[in-house]
Measured scan of single mutants.
Amino acid sequence: KRYRAVYDYSAADEDEVSFQDGDTIVNVQQIDDGWMYGTVERTGDTGMLPANYVEAI
């Protein structure tokens, strides 16, 4: 699945990823209600991200 960031996010922990509004997130997997795991296409960084900061595309 592919998602697009709708807000900027700065990683708060080493297992999270930072991204900017408009970034595409690929290979996304749902972890639980609030978190997903995926790769930021622009940077190649992979990690956890907050589900409410992205939307499906």
Rank of each mutant, 00 (worst) to 15 (best):
K1D: 11
K1L: 12
K1V: 12
K1Q: 12
K1S: 11
K1N: 12
K1R: 12
R2A: 08
R2V: 12
R2D: 08
R2I: 12
R2Y: 08
R2W: 08
Y3K: 03
Y3S: 04
Y3R: 03
R4P: 03
R4V: 10
R4Y: 08
V6K: 13
V6P: 00
V6Q: 08
Y7W: 11
Y7K: 15
Y7D: 10
Y7E: 11
Y7P: 00
D8P: 13
D8Y: 07
D8K: 08
D8E: 09
Y9G: 01
Y9M: 01
Y9N: 03
Y9Q: 02
Y9W: 05
S10Y: 13
S10L: 13
S10Q: 14
A11C: 05
A11N: 04
A11M: 04
A11R: 07
A11G: 08
A12N: 13
A12F: 10
A12V: 12
A12G: 10
A12H: 12
D13T: 15
D13P: 02
D13R: 15
D13H: 15
D13W: 10
E14L: 10
E14T: 12
E14A: 11
E14N: 11
E14R: 10
E14I: 12
E14W: 11
D15K: 15
E16K: 10
E16A: 07
E16I: 05
E16D: 05
E16H: 12
E16Y: 09
V17P: 01
V17E: 01
V17T: 03
S18A: 04
S18E: 03
F19T: 02
F19Y: 00
F19Q: 00
F19A: 01
F19H: 00
F19V: 05
Q20W: 10
Q20P: 00
Q20K: 14
D21W: 15
G22P: 01
G22A: 04
D23A: 01
D23K: 02
D23M: 03
D23H: 02
D23F: 02
D23N: 02
D23I: 01
T24D: 07
T24C: 12
T24S: 09
T24V: 15
I25M: 06
V26T: 10
V26L: 11
V26N: 07
V26C: 10
V26P: 00
N27L: 13
N27I: 13
N27P: 02
N27S: 08
N27Y: 08
N27C: 13
N27E: 09
V28H: 05
V28K: 03
V28T: 07
Q29F: 13
Q30N: 10
Q30K: 12
Q30L: 13
Q30T: 11
I31K: 09
I31G: 07
I31T: 07
I31A: 09
D32R: 14
D32H: 12
D33V: 09
D33Y: 09
D33K: 09
D33H: 11
D33E: 12
W35M: 05
W35N: 04
W35F: 07
W35K: 06
W35L: 05
M36W: 12
M36L: 14
Y37S: 08
Y37E: 06
G38Y: 00
G38S: 00
G38K: 00
T39K: 08
T39G: 01
T39W: 03
T39V: 07
T39Q: 09
T39L: 05
T39A: 03
V40C: 04
V40Q: 02
E41H: 06
E41W: 06
E41V: 11
E41F: 06
R42D: 04
R42N: 05
R42T: 05
T43R: 01
T43H: 02
T43C: 04
T43E: 02
T43L: 01
T43P: 02
T43W: 02
G44T: 04
G44D: 05
D45F: 08
T46W: 07
T46K: 10
T46Y: 08
T46S: 13
T46N: 06
G47R: 00
G47M: 02
G47K: 00
M48H: 08
M48E: 03
L49W: 04
L49F: 15
L49S: 00
L49C: 03
L49D: 01
P50H: 09
P50S: 05
P50G: 03
P50K: 09
P50F: 04
A51D: 05
A51Q: 07
A51P: 05
A51R: 11
A51K: 09
N52S: 13
N52H: 13
N52G: 12
N52A: 14
Y53A: 14
Y53W: 07
Y53V: 08
Y53D: 01
Y53M: 11
V54I: 11
V54T: 05
V54Q: 00
V54E: 00
E55V: 14
E55C: 11
E55F: 07
E55G: 04
E55A: 09
A56V: 13
A56N: 08
A56K: 10
A56Y: 11
A56C: 11
I57C: 10
I57A: 07
